[in-house]
Write a protein that binds this DNA or RNA. Structure first.
Lengths: 240, 240
DNA sequence: CGGGGACTTGATAGTTTTCAATTCAAGTGG
DNA sequence: CCACTTGAATTGAAAACTATCAAGTCCCCG
């Protein structure tokens, strides 16, 4: 211990030690040395709800980890119609490896904190470290599974089931510590929920009201939702 | 040359040499030795239209390469509603790495040929060969991009645009040699198209008729489609 | 040539959207 | 502290789109 400075005993950067993304995030596969290297180039950043992290068609210059908050990924058509194609929660990795240009827009849905890395550094680590690519691959596959689940929701469910599916998704993702949160603030506005479900604001509102009147959920202040019975919500969502 | 038999000069298996999947498929990253090893355990198989390759909820015991034909990936709800969440063309790799159970059904849409590998062999090669995992990762990302594009179609496009989008997708994927095929046989029945677009058979039929009457497409014998002007189809699909 | 599945077409019903008005909550400034 | 403004959300009525139900037609195949 006396001043020995072997590489193997180097310490992880202070900010990483306390970082939510290390537990389950992509950084968890990195060696202490890689962590130090990556940390040297990373910038922790706070973004406000509504801020754009990257725009559809822009050059991809950085990737990021989400430390807390919710980020929405969306696509827009030429005439303005919009579809949210994914939500990302801590400790998700954000960015599309191996592509120069982003095919979607990433925008903070809530206030959020992210840890941003220059593209070049990540690309190098991917080449050097198979474990790191494996971790990214695993997350890509998870996102693909989620996207396909959502395709079933978009294509085949009724408005009622769609809204219930959305609430179920949030209840199961908003708090990484819980399997199902019985009470939570919605991270999305009615307009965003509509864009996620392929509905209009009015239809979302009507179906929320119906779920409330049916006793499946309790709503306070428009944004706070309580779910007395997870099974009833799951049934309403049409989930097996 | 005189009878030298060094490993580096071993020959790729005869079947692999002629294999479509080697050109652009995952096998293209393998060394000759790995190819020999993989080939020892692979079985080439012909499946008829409608045959199930793997079922939702089943154990995943094999992965496969598609050599020719089209395979549809679909999800079903408890009450029978169904959604096709992806189409795979040669030389796509089929299977969900790192998961024991399939979350979807893979079924041949047309007669097809596939090259099947036992799960264990692939899993080992993934561990040994970072290039192979990289190739799988790349394909996963491509599928994720396609899934998200389709989410926009499912959530925000009209029936007319959906059908045009489907035809555009087929025209750009049915023949790996062409960027856009002006004439092709539809690999899916009207029922399958409906399940892919989140519509009913009748609506698909009506929109096909409308596109035909508008001169965007020519239909012969129900299954054969000709597209006189790719731009008109693209516009009808609402693609930027 | 007949049977049967796949596809089309028509009429009607149902769901979701659109348009419009209203309520609500939270700030802002007098 | 109370109007007033503003943006978000709810509610209502009418319109539009897609699904459903019900015949037909076409085409492949024996």
């Amino acid at each position: 211990m006396q001043g020995k400075r072997m590489n193997a005993e180097a310490e992880a950067p202070q900010v990483c030690k306390a970082c939510e993304a290390r537990h389950g995030g992509v950084c968890s596969t990195l060696s202490v040395l890689q962590l130090i290297e990556l940390n040297r180039h990373s910038t922790r950043r706070r973004v406000g709800a509504g801020d754009e992290v990257i725009g559809q068609g822009e050059q991809i210059s950085t990737y990021s980890n989400i430390l807390n908050g919710v980020v929405k990924l969306s696509k827009m058509m030429a005439d303005g119609r919009q579809q949210i194609v994914g939500l990302q929660f801590a400790p998700d990795f954000m960015g599309r490896p191996f592509l120069k240009e982003s095919s979607l827009t990433a925008e903070a849905a809530t206030d959020a904190e992210i840890c941003a890395f220059p593209r070049a550094v990540i690309d190098r680590i991917v080449n050097e470290s198979p474990d790191f690519e494996h971790k990214l691959h695993t997350q890509s596959l998870k996102e693909l599974d989620e996207a396909r689940d959502w395709m079933l929701t978009l294509g085949r469910k009724t408005a009622q089931e769609k809204v219930a599916s959305f609430l179920y998704l949030i209840a199961t993702h908003i708090n990484p510590m819980e399997k199902f949160s019985k009470s939570f603030d919605l991270p999305l506005s009615r307009a965003d929920i509509a864009d996620f479900l392929g509905l209009t604001i009015e239809t979302v509102s009507r179906q929320m009201t119906k779920l409330r009147k049916d006793g499946v959920i309790v709503i306070e202040n428009n944004r706070h939702v309580t779910v007395p019975d997870a099974h009833r919500l799951k049934d309403a969502a049409g989930v097996d």
